[in-house]
C-alpha cells in the first residue's frame, strides 16, 4: 500500500519497575493511510497513551519500528529526528496544562517556527500565526492574549493550531475532547473533521469514549493491556465485534436513549483491568472473560482474521455478536 503514511511493527515499550517491567505497549502493529482516521480505544492502563507518546517520539520504544513514510523514526537522532517530527504532531488531552501560561498565544503558535526556522512560510511568521488562528476558528487579533483568558474549547483550538504549524501529514490526538464539555466537544470534533478534509490530514485518534471514536474514525483498533485485540473498519468493530472484550466494552457504553433500557445486550465484566506489570499468561483478557477455556492461559491468540471473524481479532473463540442490536 503506497498510501500508508505511518506504520508500526512489533512496537514494544516496557518501563522498568521495582520488579520486572510494566509492559505498557507489548507488540503493536498498526498502519495509517493518507487522509484516514484510525481510532484507538481502550480503558486506562491499556497503553494507548504510551502508544501516542511512542508515535510522536516522546518515548523511545524498547523494540520495534515506527515508519513514517517508510523512514524508521526510532533510529533517527538529532537534526534528522527534528526534521522527521515536522511530519507527525500531537494534540494533547488537557487544554489547561498543555499551553505554557507565561507565553502569549502568538508565541505558543509561533514556537514551532522558532524551533524550525526553515519551516516558516514565505509570507513570514507573523502572517502564518494569524492564518493558523483563523484556520482553527479563533480571532486572529487575539495573538497577544494569554492562555488563561480562553475557555477550554478555545485552548484546545490553540493546541490544534500549534500542531498544524509545521504542516504535518499526521496528527496524533490523545483524548483531545475528553476534558471538554459536551457542547464544546462537538465544536472541536467538527473542527478536526473539517481540517482533515481541507488539509488531507491523517489522524490517530486515541480516546476512551467509544461514541466519539465511532463518530470520527474510519478504522478502529481496540487495545487491552498493551495489545491490540481487535481491529477493523468502524462498521466491523461496532456492528460485528468478534472479540469478547470489544463486545463487553461496547455493551457497557451508556447510550443517551432511555427507550433502550433493558433492551440492550449488557455484558457485565467481572473485576478490573489487571496490572500491566504482571499481565495474565496466554490471552490477557482471559481473567475477565466468560468464554475463557484452559487453553487461553497457555496459548496467546494472535491478531488475525479467523474463521468466524472477517476482520483481525485476537481471540481463540472469536465470533460475531452484535451487541448494538435492540431487543
Amino acid at each position: 500500500m503506497s498510501d500508508v503514511v505511518l506504520e508500526t511493527r512489533g512496537l514494544v515499550k516496557h518501563f522498568p519497575a521495582r520488579r520486572g517491567a510494566v509492559r505498557a505497549v507489548d507488540g503493536v502493529d498498526l498502519h495509517l493511510r493518507r487522509g484516514e482516521t484510525l481510532g484507538v480505544v481502550g480503558e486506562s492502563g491499556c497503553g494507548k497513551s504510551t502508544l501516542a507518546r511512542l508515535l510522536v517520539a516522546l518515548e523511545k520504544p524498547t523494540r520495534g519500528e515506527i515508519r513514517v513514510r517508510g523512514e524508521d523514526l526510532t533510529r533517527l537522532k538529532g537534526a534528522a529526528l527534528r526534521r522527521a517530527r515536522r511530519n507527525i504532531q500531537m494534540v494533547l488531552q488537557d487544554p489547561y496544562t498543555s499551553l505554557n501560561p507565561r507565553m502569549t498565544v502568538g508565541a505558543i503558535i509561533g514556537e514551532p517556527y522558532d524551533i524550525h526556522p526553515d519551516a516558516v512560510p514565505r509570507t513570514g511568521k507573523a502572517r502564518a500565526v494569524q492564518e493558523l488562528l483563523d484556520i482553527v476558528g479563533l480571532n486572529p487579533d487575539h495573538l497577544n492574549r494569554y492562555p488563561h483568558q480562553f475557555s477550554g474549547g478555545q485552548r484546545q483550538r490553540i493546541g490544534i493550531a500549534r500542531a498544524l504549524a509545521l504542516r504535518p501529514e499526521i496528527i496524533v490526538c490523545d483524548e483531545p475532547v475528553s476534558a471538554l464539555d459536551v457542547s464544546i466537544q462537538a465544536q472541536v470534533i467538527n473542527l478536526l473533521e473539517g481540517l482533515q478534509r481541507e488539509l488531507g490530514l491523517s489522524y490517530v485518534f486515541i480516546a476512551h469514549d467509544l461514541s466519539v471514536v465511532r463518530h470520527i474514525s474510519d478504522r478502529v483498533a481496540v487495545m487491552y493491556l498493551g495489545k491490540i485485540v481487535e481491529t477493523g473498519d468502524h462498521a466491523a468493530i461496532y456492528e460485528q465485534p468478534t472479540h469478547p472484550y470489544t463486545q463487553a466494552l461496547l455493551s457497557a457504553v451508556p447510550v443517551p436513549d432511555p427507550r433502550l433500557r433493558g433492551r440492550r445486550d449488557h455484558i457485565m465484566l467481572e473485576g478490573e483491568v489487571p496490572s500491566p506489570a504482571d499481565p495474565p499468561s496466554g490471552c490477557r483478557f482471559r481473567t475477565r472473560c466468560w468464554k475463557a477455556q484452559p487453553a487461553c492461559a497457555d496459548h496467546e491468540p494472535l491478531l488475525e482474521i479467523r474463521q468466524r471473524s472477517p476482520h483481525p481479532s485476537a481471540c481463540h473463540f472469536a465470533e460475531i455478536r452484535d451487541v448494538m442490536r435492540r431487543f
Binding site: V136, G137, L138, N139, H142, R145, Q149, G194, E198
Partner: peptide, 16 residues
C-alpha cells in the same frame, strides 16, 4: 465553508 463555520462557533476571549 469550514473557516466561516468554525469562526462563528468560537467568539473571542471573555476578557482582555
Amino acid at each position: 465553508d469550514f473557516t466561516a463555520v468554525s469562526t462563528a462557533e468560537a467568539p473571542g476571549p471573555r476578557a482582555g
